[in-house]
């Protein structure tokens, strides 16, 4: 974390015979727009015929050695800030079942939002540790941060921003296999009995293009939340804190 992107290469798999070329065009031009927005340059790519469309980017950038942000610096007393709502995995399942159209639209909008602006806001604060929330879910990436930092965290599930319809979709069992795999791996996380199963599922839900999880001194929490909101990261919330030294234990209440 903390770097600036320079170049990006497309990596695409696509069912050439089954889907219209217009679909591929839409994917590539959407990617192109986001690369330009991020301030990088598109320098080509690779395409392979496959049963299911997949799209990704290989990005190269630079970072000043003294400005690299890792997930290993969280300190006792820090506040934990999350910059996007969670639930994209569950809502992607809902999309495949033609359910929860409002939530699906909100998830798409959230995923299309770059973390660039949140990253720029971060530069003005004393950020101790930072990571982005992706396939291991909020708790998976929080655990990586807490164990790498040698601390124990408390997360207040009632404060964690959820995408619209995500809680209802999780109650209906639209939970991706990855969320169960994350839960299975993250057995060291303890839940207060008041945290319902659907909320637990969302905390383990794999995210696509999730937000940033930031650990910084608690006295800067209110200020960074306001600054993030002004910069367009409207869901930004303080979701918990670093409690004490430890081996990565997380308590969710």
């Amino acid at each position: 974390m903390g770097g600036k992107p320079l170049t990006a290469m497309n990596i695409v798999t696509f069912p050439v015979c089954r889907l219209d070329a217009e679909v591929l065009l839409a994917i590539l031009s959407g990617g192109q727009q986001k690369i330009a927005e991020a301030g990088a340059v598109m320098v080509g790519g690779h395409t392979i015929d496959d049963d299911e469309p997949k799209y990704g980017l290989s990005v190269t950038g630079t970072v000043h050695p003294s400005k690299i942000l890792t997930n290993a610096g969280a300190q006792i007393g820090d506040a934990l800030i999350l910059t996007k709502a969670i639930g994209t995995g569950v809502l992607y399942t809902a999309l495949r079942m033609d359910l929860f159209a409002d939530g699906v639209a909100a998830a798409a909008q959230s995923m299309a939002q770059l973390n660039k602006y949140a990253a720029e806001v971060m530069e003005k604060y004393t950020v101790h540790a930072c990571t982005d929330i992706t396939g291991f879910g909020l708790l998976g990436h929080a655990y990586e941060m807490s164990s790498a930092s040698g601390v124990e965290m408390q997360i207040d599930s009632g404060e964690v921003p959820l995408l619209p319809d995500a809680a209802a979709a999780a109650t209906m069992g639209l939970v991706p296999a990855g969320a169960y795999a994350n839960r299975e791996y993250l057995k060291m996380i303890s839940f207060d009995s008041s945290v319902t199963v659907n909320i637990q599922d969302l905390l383990f839900d794999p995210q696509t293009s999730g937000g940033l999880l930031i650990s910084l001194p608690s006295e800067q929490a209110d200020s960074i939340v306001q600054a993030m909101k002004s910069a367009g990261a409207a869901a930004t919330t303080c979701i918990g804190r670093v409690v004490k030294k430890g081996k990565g234990q997380i308590n969710v209440k």
């Binding site: 069992g173 939970v175 169960y180």
Partner: peptide
Amino acid sequence: DNAAAKENVAKFATAG
């Protein structure tokens, strides 16, 4: 044949 699918199907049916 897997626990995740079992849980999801049960949740879906219960919600219905």
